[in-house]
Amino acid sequence: MKQNNKHSTSQSPITLLGALLITTILAACSSAPIPIEYYLLDTGYNTQAHSVIHSHDAHNTTELPRVLLKNLTIANYLEQNELSILEANHKIYYANQHLWGEPIKVGLARALQHDLAKSKSALLVLPNEPDALEASTILTVKIDHFSATDSGEVILTGTFWIDNGQHTVRIPFNETEILESTGFKFAVTQQRQLIQNLSEIIAQAMKPSPSPL
């Protein structure tokens, strides 16, 4: 019996330390969660008009010329979920709580599809889509910068190529939008607008040149 008493008295510091550790962990878990916001570049929803794209728009695109988006490449620093801010001195800032909800390349392709279809310029098809073989024109897009800057702008720069089977046209683009409000949600909106601007440039480039006669 005496031995049991001695044993219980020796365990008391260890028990005390264990309780302290558990308390610390619980205290850590009780800290406030960090809110994370996810963004989609193209939602199929006109964010500015707060309206859904009508279904008849999709029906009208069946007769549009197929343009195969053969390759869409983006800069390596854009190949991630975090939204970024280009700073001076060649620095870049990645946000921790503002993330893309899908790979940016998927969002870019879908946004271009919607914008070109909406402008009735072309029906952009992806390589893995069934009607990819029907495309007579091949579009290749390379995006160098697609981000907000610390100077209150959102930029989109890069190059695209249009191959109509006879010749290939190389067109660089450099679009900028003013950030009217502070915040990533406004920056994403402007980025979507830049994609629309790009789609208009592509649509303009795909138009046949007027006959000299």
């Binding site: 610390t24 962990i25 850590a28 800290s31 960090i34 801010i85 800032y93 990645y94 946000a95 921790n96 709580q97 503002h98 907000a148 800057t149 610390d150 100077s151 209150g152 702008e153 959102v154 003013i178 950030l179 009217e180 409000s181 502070t182 915040g183 990533f184 406004f186 920056a187």
Partner: peptide, 29 residues
């Protein structure tokens, strides 16, 4: 990246600051 910046951040999260936000342009219309 968070673990790289602060290895004990999984346990001791502390008070983490808000992300920087892209600022509106002073030249906005």
């Amino acid at each position: 990246r968070q673990l790289n910046e602060k290895p004990n951040s999984l346990v001791f999260t502390g008070r983490k600051g808000e992300d920087r936000q892209p600022q509106a342009s002073p030249l906005k219309p």
